[in-house]
């Protein structure tokens, strides 16, 4: 088996790289794929928290690199899904503890026995980014419809294009607020896509459920009723090569804005009477 190695990156911090990683990974595993996630954010690891695996980590990627354990030993299995594994980052070391070459080798090794290797990239464009990208052949650039995130995403796209090993990259628009976009208070998905001239992989709406699901250490894709969960599951389908249309949140929002307006007028009238 030769799996795909996909790096999930963004440039700017706090746009939802790790959340995206946890959810796409979980969704792919739910669909029956064998998935391993690598946290390369040495010193600031968080992927374990989002998956609720923080108490199960024995060895980290640094232990693998420094040959204190075998690669297989360091993989932590997910609580629910046996198809899903995590290779955790070391919390006590910095980005220089693993080199590009070492990460490349780990990815090469893992893709022999997994369908998907998802690499969680640290924020920034320094060595940590270069390391994370080294073993990947595809990239997902996470951004939000905010100026700073879009600008940083553009920079990241430039750096990805400069790396020959990255064959393709796609954009994931996170924390999208359809109501604000419909009211023209926030950039629309089309505008972000046009600015960055990149292919869109999916749109994830802002969802307060992300916070509660993180609190519990359970990715939101497991919640059948969540809108963000549904959007992430669709993204996973697209990654597997299935043609799933992107949900038009803006149209839905426009409609519900109208309904709200109508009812608020109605209520006002009622009060006046």
């Amino acid at each position: 088996m030769t799996g795909k190695v996909i790096v999930i990156t963004s440039g700017k911090g706090g746009v939802g790289k790790t959340t995206t990683n946890a959810n796409i990974g979980t969704a792919l595993a739910r669909a029956g794929k064998k998935v391993v996630m690598i946290d390369t954010d040495l010193g600031l690891r968080n992927l374990d928290l989002l998956l609720g695996l923080e108490n199960r980590i024995v060895y980290t990627i640094v232990d693998v690199v420094e040959e204190r354990c075998k690669l297989k030993q360091a993989l932590v299995k997910d609580k629910k899904n046996p198809n899903l594994c995590l290779l955790a980052a070391a919390q006590t070391r910095d980005k220089s503890a693993v080199t590009e070459e070492q990460l490349k080798n780990i990815c090469e090794e893992l893709k022999k026995s997994f369908d998907f290797v998802l690499v969680d990239c640290p924020a920034g464009i320094e060595q940590g980014f270069q390391n994370a990208v080294a073993g990947a052949s595809e990239a997902i650039v996470v951004t939000t419809p905010e100026m700073s995130a879009v600008r940083d995403a553009d920079r990241i796209i430039g750096l990805l294009e400069a790396r020959e090993e990255i064959k393709s990259y796609k954009l994931l628009l996170n924390r999208y607020r359809p109501h604000m976009a419909a009211a023209k208070d926030m950039m629309s998905a089309d505008e972000v896509v046009e600015l960055l001239s990149a292919e869109l992989l999916g749109i994830i709406p802002e969802d307060t459920g992300i916070i509660t699901s993180t609190n519990k250490g359970e990715p939101i894709v497991n919640d059948e009723n969540s809108l963000a969960g549904r959007a992430y599951r669709n993204v996973a389908e697209r990654i597997m090569g299935n043609d799933v249309p992107i949900i038009d949140f803006e149209e839905e929002a426009k409609f519900s804005n109208k309904v709200k307006k109508f009812f608020s007028k109605f209520l006002k009238k009622g009060k006046e009477n």
Binding site: M147, V150, R151, D154, R155, G158, A181, K184, D185, M186, M187, S188, E191, L195
Partner: peptide, 19 residues
């Protein structure tokens, strides 16, 4: 002018300069 139009225009310029 919608604030998002301001954002789009500012970004266009800044991305152009960055690139």
């Amino acid at each position: 002018e919608d604030s998002k139009d301001v954002a789009v225009n500012r970004l266009r310029l800044v991305l152009m300069q960055d690139r």
